[in-house]
Design a protein around this nucleic acid. Structure first.
Length: 227
DNA sequence: GCGACAG
DNA sequence: ATCTTGTCGC
């Protein structure tokens, strides 16, 4: 799989922001996709001393959630962690991973925000636009926005608001556990994004393997699709 | 100026 | 994210 859009990754803060502002115009904030047969989950881990990034990518059959393809790759750090510019740090290894898979997913669930971002262009939106594939932002914590704590039952949610606009939903995927921050990535409406996250959450079961690569994939799935 | 700040 | 002891809150 190759991205349909390319841009440099060796850049400074100002250039990165400029790219975000330009690419943000391409984000489609409504449902615009065909049948979802395959769903991808991605996560990036850090090596011991944090000098290398490890991207784990899995492709699952969307209804059975069975693993059909996976890859784990390493990449060098090219950008520091700066809130708001997160994608410039973690997308290079993620894109490298996507280049190695054969099955093109119809949806990608990302560990990070979509449009719940200062310039409405978080990692999920960035990845979605570069490949022009539907993506959902599913962050564990908040980048910005205000909200009231959602009720404790699975499925409960409350809007995440910034600048008087709803930029996402704080969604409870299981009773009594910390909610996730769901936002539009690309080609998905917020309502659909939440439905899909809920659809994937309860069915998930860890694959039984011992290989290191699959171990990372397990971790990836655990994080991206909360229990 | 002082905090807040995806992973 | 990762490194880590005791400590705060329910």
């Amino acid at each position: 799989m190759e991205p349909i859009l390319i841009h440099p990754w060796e850049l400074n803060e100002k250039e990165a922001i400029s790219i975000q502002v330009n690419l943000a115009k391409k984000v489609i904030q409504r449902d615009y996709y065909d049948q979802i047969n395959y769903v991808a989950g991605v996560d990036v881990a850090y090596s011991k001393r944090g000098e290398e990034l490890i991207a784990a990518l899995v492709i699952l059959e969307s209804t059975s959630l069975k693993l059909v393809e996976s890859v784990v790759i390493e990449d060098k750090v090219r950008f520091p962690y700066i809130p708001g510019l997160f994608s410039f740090r973690e997308l290079p290894p993620i894109i490298k991973a996507f280049k190695q898979i054969k099955i093109k997913p119809n949806l990608i669930v990302c560990d990070g925000q979509g449009i719940a971002h200062p310039r409405r262009f978080g990692l999920a939106s960035h990845l979605g636009v570069l490949f022009d594939i539907p993506t959902i932002g599913c962050g564990k914590t908040r980048l910005l926005g205000t909200y009231k704590e959602p009720e404790l039952q699975r499925g409960a949610y409350s809007p995440l608001i910034d600048n008087n606009e709803v930029i996402g939903n704080v969604l409870r995927t299981q009773d009594n556990i910390k909610p996730v921050f769901v936002s539009i990535g690309h080609r998905i409406s917020l309502a659909t994004a939440c439905e899909l996250i809920l659809q994937f959450s309860p069915k998930y079961r860890l694959p039984e393997t011992t290989r290191q690569a699959d171990h990372l994939v397990k971790i990836t799935l655990n994080k991206i699709i909360p229990k």
